[in-house]
Simulated assay, not measured.
Amino acid sequence: MRFAVIDLGTNTFHLLIAKSDGKNYEILYKTNVPVKLGEGRINDNIIIPAAFERGIETLKKFSQTIAEFNVQVTKATATSAVRSAKNGLDFVFSAKELAGIDIKTISGDDEAELIYNGVKLSGAIEDLSLIMDIGGGSVEFILCDMEKLIWKKSYDTGAARLMQQFFKSDPISDEDKNSILNHIQNQLADLFEVCEKYQPKILIGSAGAFETFAELIIRKNNQTIDISTTKTYKFDYEEYIAISLKLINSTHNERASMPGMIALRVDMIVVAALITNYVMGRTKLNKLTLSTYDLKMGVLASLL
């Protein structure tokens, strides 16, 4: 049996194709495209025409690839950008009409659960953990241990939203930094209450920005680790802090020239670093692990 999973994120559309014999699975193909569906007016809850068109064109290409791999089951999930957009239903309709892809728009709660299932599949959960997934439109937090999901919540404080609202300087000014941190502090109050009660031991970063943090450190240290084929990566805390502060204090051009940086994240990585450092500081966590398995692997797990 062959399965295709499409994850329509606010920044990136992902396609994953796998086959299973009922017991084991093998990933046959994966790709991602920086569609930037939340470009320009995500805080107005609008998918702008250029982003709308990029999204549909990408889905048409995904549809062709799915046909070439003779896939039997396809599952496409849309998250924050489509979920909150006034023209989100128009996008879902156009995807069906023009690309032949049925999209299910999932809730923030469902998104968090699928992220948990994906991270669990990676083997990254070794203790009482706080999983964090920084998307463009939303950020999901999941408190869990090796056996169970304890608490989960999705917040509309994604990197694209915060960037469009607060990030107006280069390098980012103290004023812009403080605006972002004040916003996070207000939004995440109940998260910190839950963490105070349960005292998680490790922060697990789910793919996305955390892959970029890892890639920057790997390149800096001339290591031979390939993040694209790795399930997990344990950060050295001091190395993570050093790279995050470098990102926050650098200009757009300085970040763009860093080995391991991808164009999509040149500016959003600053917001991701600010959120991550703030959460680690407030929860007194100094252990950070990357899980390259995220929502799309959670969807695959549910299909298998």
Results as ranks from 00 to 15, higher is better:
1 M>I: 08
3 F>G: 01
4 A>Q: 04
5 V>Q: 09
7 D>M: 08
7 D>T: 03
8 L>G: 01
9 G>T: 09
11 N>S: 03
13 F>T: 05
15 L>S: 02
18 A>Q: 02
18 A>T: 05
21 D>H: 12
23 K>N: 14
24 N>Y: 14
26 E>L: 15
29 Y>E: 13
34 P>D: 01
37 L>M: 11
38 G>C: 02
44 D>Y: 08
46 I>K: 07
47 I>S: 01
52 F>C: 07
56 I>W: 14
57 E>H: 14
57 E>M: 13
62 F>K: 01
64 Q>K: 11
64 Q>P: 03
66 I>Y: 11
69 F>C: 07
72 Q>K: 13
74 T>P: 07
82 V>K: 04
82 V>Q: 01
83 R>W: 11
89 L>E: 15
92 V>S: 07
93 F>H: 13
95 A>Q: 08
96 K>R: 08
100 G>T: 06
102 D>S: 13
105 T>H: 00
107 S>I: 05
108 G>F: 08
115 I>N: 05
116 Y>A: 00
119 V>K: 02
119 V>D: 06
121 L>V: 01
124 A>Q: 10
124 A>L: 00
127 D>Y: 12
127 D>H: 13
129 S>F: 12
131 I>K: 08
133 D>G: 01
134 I>D: 07
134 I>V: 15
136 G>Y: 04
137 G>T: 02
141 F>S: 05
141 F>Y: 02
141 F>E: 00
143 L>F: 15
145 D>T: 04
148 K>V: 10
151 W>N: 12
152 K>T: 00
153 K>D: 06
157 T>I: 09
157 T>A: 05
158 G>W: 05
159 A>L: 08
159 A>K: 01
162 L>S: 04
162 L>Y: 07
165 Q>Y: 05
176 D>F: 11
177 K>R: 15
178 N>T: 08
183 H>A: 01
184 I>F: 13
185 Q>M: 11
186 N>I: 02
189 A>Y: 08
192 F>P: 03
195 C>G: 03
196 E>V: 03
200 P>R: 13
201 K>A: 11
204 I>D: 15
205 G>M: 11
208 G>A: 14
210 F>W: 12
210 F>T: 13
211 E>I: 10
214 A>N: 03
219 R>A: 03
219 R>Q: 15
221 N>K: 15
224 T>S: 12
224 T>P: 07
225 I>G: 06
231 K>T: 07
231 K>E: 06
240 Y>Q: 05
245 L>S: 11
246 K>T: 10
256 A>T: 03
261 M>I: 15
266 V>G: 07
276 T>W: 09
277 N>M: 13
281 G>C: 03
285 L>P: 15
286 N>R: 12
287 K>N: 09
289 T>Q: 04
293 Y>E: 06
294 D>V: 10
302 S>V: 05
302 S>E: 15
302 S>N: 14
304 L>M: 10
